[in-house]
């Protein structure tokens, strides 16, 4: 995925929330920093100001230790009120792994997460099929494109009731699904037992996106791949498009 020209100044501003127990905050921050057009700053969970930001990232980790249901405490952090307002005003919000769980707990995205079917933490590269390449988070991918992105979670088994699933399908809110290398969303390719191989969903408006896989971990070929760059490139693209 190509980056914007180096001559551009860093005009697209990301905020990365640090909850106590976040541990992918620096990875997300560093991934954004590899894009010439973007800059990232950290947001403390007790802060409430999101002024001047284009996109908020809720990173992976174990917020509050996740000793309770994942994300169940973090949703009550002061910053989540601000994030909820930010999203209601159309701001872009992406939750990765634990960030996705927090978005589900806070009701910004529909559905819930169960423990992995195998009841074990699983960390490995998986294949994802881009189901909706029109969102602000996926517009630099092709529809149906298969990308390789790692997962690392104990609780990634997405669930929603039947009407909820129908609604997700109808409004094209299923953004990425687990698939095999040829792009088939088979049972064998599903690493955690998630319903309909769902790996990530967006809200109906399309400005809030959550996914279990970690695109920020594959933004540099030196560490195993660059397929995750498209997510950040898409966000930057949609912000710059909206400005022109």
């Amino acid at each position: 995925m190509s980056t914007l020209p180096q001559t551009e100044t860093r005009t697209v501003r990301f905020g990365v929330v640090i909850f106590p127990g976040s541990n992918c905050d620096a990875d997300s921050h560093d991934a954004v920093g590899t894009f010439a057009a973007a800059a990232a700053r950290y947001l403390w969970h007790k802060d409430t100001g999101l002024d001047g930001l284009d996109c908020v990232i809720l990173p992976g980790g174990f917020s509050y230790g996740d000793y309770l249901r994942s994300g169940a405490i973090a949703r009550f952090s002061p910053i989540m009120e601000a994030v909820t307002r930010f999203a209601a005003d159309g701001g872009l919000v992406i939750g990765i792994c634990n960030g996705f769980q927090i978005l589900l707990e806070s009701g910004l995205l529909p559905g819930a997460i169960h423990r992995n079917q195998a009841l074990k933490f699983v960390c490995r590269l998986v294949s994802l099929r881009v189901e909706n390449a029109t969102t602000p988070f996926t517009n630099k991918y092709n529809q149906g494109q298969v990308i390789r992105v790692p997962i690392a979670h104990m609780e990634g088994n997405y669930f929603i009731d039947a009407p909820g699933l129908a609604s997700l399908e109808q409004h094209k809110q299923i953004v990425v699904r687990y698939c095999d290398e040829s792009g088939s969303a088979t049972k064998e390719a599903n690493p955690n037992g998630s319903l309909a191989n769902i790996a990530g969903v967006c809200n109906r408006e399309g400005n809030v996106f959550g996914l279990m896989p970690h695109p920020e971990r594959v933004c540099d070929p030196v560490v195993g791949g660059a397929d995750g760059r498209g997510v950040f490139a898409s966000i930057i693209n949609s912000i710059t498009q909206a400005r022109t």
Partner: peptide, 16 residues
């Protein structure tokens, strides 16, 4: 064994 460990966080792993 190693699939149960997060072996990628901090994004410095040059080898699997």
């Amino acid at each position: 064994v190693w699939q149960q460990y997060d072996h990628m966080v901090q994004t410095n792993n040059a080898l699997w």
